[in-house]
């Protein structure tokens, strides 16, 4: 039992950025805990992915037509088998849609503890001390977990740049698990981004509205400001789920990733899943009546003014007089 196993995510052609973060975290942990950094990559064709995994000492490749597209059931079978075969001290999975399926599922199947929402991980003896964001990012829990264990890691917590090289890069081709022949689920199709009327990922300025806007009728206030600023409207997930703005404007984990020069967050609390979509924005200004809202930890400027007073005031100043 040694080493750190990283579950690698991809779209079949490129390794996902979160996987490089995990490889960076794995290297730090392996230096203290001992053992190799191992990358598990399961796909219909691992060929295009392996070359990107130079940060791993060993690359465990599992190839099967049954692994085309992301299917939770198939990926869990592969991950469980890898954990059983390699007996890593630590298993790292991204807190992504895949992570929400696999981290706890694989941990349960192998009888390992699982700690979710990790933003920091360090070894202490043979234990791992983790920091996890709870309560929408309002509180941080520190846990001590005996190894072996599984951790799901929030995107943006480790330096992606440190996850591209530095390993031995040995390839180990492993036979696919027998269970792949009896899957009880199938991928019927996938749709990429785009196709919508707007593309907020290219916008230089984004005015993003959250649940604080209170209702569909109030969107107008943000729209007027966005027009006056030459900005695109963005939204948090609840605003989209409530039907107040279309899905293509959603910023965050299950929406778009934006990198505007200016991000104005209006009535957004700053949950980790929202921050994931905008942490590379330039100037961030947050308007939120709750002075303890986590958005103020990432914003450059903030105000606790009520958005219903402030938005019209800003719009008025930006509109040409007359």
């Amino acid at each position: 039992m040694a080493g750190v196993l990283v579950y690698v995510e991809s779209d079949g052609e490129r390794v996902a950025p979160i996987s490089f973060e995990l490889l960076a975290a794995a290297r730090e942990l392996a230096q203290s805990l001992g053992g190799d950094v191992e990358a598990l990559v399961a796909a219909a064709d691992t060929g295009p992915l392996v070359g990107e995994l130079g940060a791993a000492d060993t690359i465990l490749e599992v190839t099967s037509p049954a692994l085309a597209g992301y299917l939770p059931e198939a990926q869990q079978l592969v991950l469980v088998e890898a954990i059983r075969a390699r007996k890593p001290a630590v298993v790292l999975v991204g807190y992504t849609s895949a992570g929400l399926d696999l981290a706890a599922g694989a941990a349960t199947a192998t009888g390992l503890p699982v700690v979710a929402y990790c933003t920091g991980l360090r070894a202490e003896g043979s234990d791992v001390v983790a920091d996890s964001q709870l309560y929408g990012g309002k509180l941080v829990a520190t846990t001590t977990t005996s190894t072996p264990a599984v951790f799901s890691v929030v995107a943006g917590s480790f330096a992606e740049a440190n996850g591209h090289a530095g390993g031995r890069g040995e390839r180990i081709v492993t036979a696919p698990p027998a269970g792949l022949a009896q899957l009880r689920s199938r991928v019927l199709g996938t749709t990429g981004a785009g196709g919508g009327a707007v593309d907020i990922t290219k916008a230089e300025r984004v005015v993003s509205v959250g649940r604080g806007i209170g209702g569909a009728d109030n969107i107008e206030l943000a729209e007027e400001l966005a027009t006056a600023m030459g900005a695109e409207l963005g939204a948090s997930r609840p605003v989209v789920d409530s039907g107040w703005l279309p899905k293509e404007r959603q910023v965050g984990k299950s929406g778009m990733t934006v990198k505007p020069k200016l991000y104005l967050a209006v009535g957004i609390s700053g949950a980790p899943e929202h921050l994931e979509g905008m942490h590379d924005a330039g100037l961030v200004i947050a308007i939120n009546t709750d002075g303890d809202a986590p958005i103020f930890k990432v914003a450059d400027y903030g105000t606790t003014c009520d958005l219903f007073d402030l938005l019209p005031a800003i719009t008025a100043l930006l509109k040409p007089a007359g």
Binding site: L112, P113, L139
Partner: peptide, 23 residues
């Protein structure tokens, strides 16, 4: 297999510069 040793507000860090005053 895991124990919570501490629950606390996130570290202060940089944080936003707060703009004060009337709207």
């Amino acid at each position: 297999g895991s124990t919570v040793t501490r629950l606390a507000a996130p570290p202060q860090g940089q944080g936003a510069q707060m703009l004060e005053g009337r709207p």
